[in-house]
Write a protein that binds this DNA or RNA. Structure first.
Lengths: 200, 200
DNA sequence: CTCGTTACGTTGCAGTCGTAACGCGAAGGA
DNA sequence: TCCTTCGCGTTACGACTGCAACGTAACGAG
């Protein structure tokens, strides 16, 4: 066997470069050469690890989704072993808002991918899976006895609403310059309202 | 004076073609020739009416915003002279959701523009103005005595939240395939909750 | 009629795009 | 030592891009 490298790591490195380019210039700025330059490699190497541009973008979407998942689990673990469900919900949803520069970057990337997925059913499927998973998890948190209570349609609807709210507010922050503190205030107020209505 | 044409109407025609292209293929599919072909004119003519591609896109953004405004006022007028404030709020926000194919198209266009504005401060300013206007109008509707009551920070926050919610749900419908009826149910439930908390 | 302005079409150019093909060095098995 | 395979770079190609330049038809003023 000749020289062996870690393909997955190479792809990860290229994907990260793609996410940086996407965050600063949108998907329109994503070209093989541009991404390669950002990653500090040649465009031939990019081509060696991805059979086509579409494959590269698809891989980067999965990488971005993994990054979000990591952020979520970090929030979960940061709250300790037996956290207050209310703090869990608040922490999870607040983590979706672009409050610092890194999250603003991620939010711009996510926004670009949403727009991308709006005309590519294949890409939409990937996003749908992530979203459905997060939504059902959140619905569980909203149930009265923490994560073990009965999950009804009302909880599902509330989870859908809260997720949609966090997403919409985040997008307004990065695209229309809505002040982040207004987004946080609106989100927390809605969480209060929702919890009060579900756990009288 | 030689032959005179209505410049504004020509630009409008071209902008509509741009919106159609954007709705079906995203902003990446927008090129001078492509838009011209969609509009049934030559690319030279497009160039004659817009000094650059950026100017064309900016004009189309204003056209899309005007289309949304028209939809809003149509909803307002469709509710008659002295409408129930609750019906007003519900009607306005529901009109933001992509419930038919035309609105899905518009939502994809809006999504593409949001992503576009996320890296162009100039474009973001235009979106911000529209959003702020709609938000303050909605805040007025949420006040207890219809449009004439005192508008407090709580109403502003509630309006921000409801607008963000409608936007986020709409995006999830077109980009992750969230069923439209779930979006409507979540939105209406949140409106109920909000109104109940603001008008006890 | 002539002339100048406007509307619009055509062509060309410099650049970028994605992708395919080819080339070469390195590394290990035979 | 040769040969194969992998890693990676280089080059080339056809398509497409935004844009500038030029050409021309139409029409009104003088």
């Amino acid at each position: 066997m000749p020289k062996q490298v870690d393909h997955e790591q190479r792809r990860q490195q290229i994907a990260e470069a793609l996410l940086e380019v996407t965050g600063s210039q949108g998907l329109e700025g994503v070209s093989l050469r541009h991404v390669a330059a950002q990653a500090g490699v040649t465009s031939g190497m990019v081509q060696h690890y991805f059979p086509s541009k579409d494959a590269m973008v698809a891989f980067a979407m999965r990488a971005a989704s993994a990054r979000y998942s990591a952020r979520m689990t970090a929030v979960l673990e940061g709250l300790g072993p037996a956290p207050d469900p209310r703090a869990l919900v608040t922490g999870l949803l607040t983590a979706l808002l672009p409050l610092d520069e890194q999250q603003r970057q991620d939010a711009r990337v996510a926004l670009a991918f949403q727009s991308y997925a709006a005309h590519r059913p294949a890409a939409a499927d990937a996003l749908r899976a992530d979203n459905a998973q997060l939504c059902s998890f959140l619905a569980g948190l909203l149930a009265p006895q923490g994560a073990d209570g009965p999950v009804t349609a009302r909880h599902e609807h509330a989870a859908t609403a809260l997720l949609g709210l966090a997403e919409g507010l985040g997008i307004q922050v990065v695209s229309t310059g809505l002040p982040a503190e207004r987004a946080v205030a609106a989100l927390h107020a809605s969480i209060d309202l929702t919890l009060r209505s579900l756990r009288p």
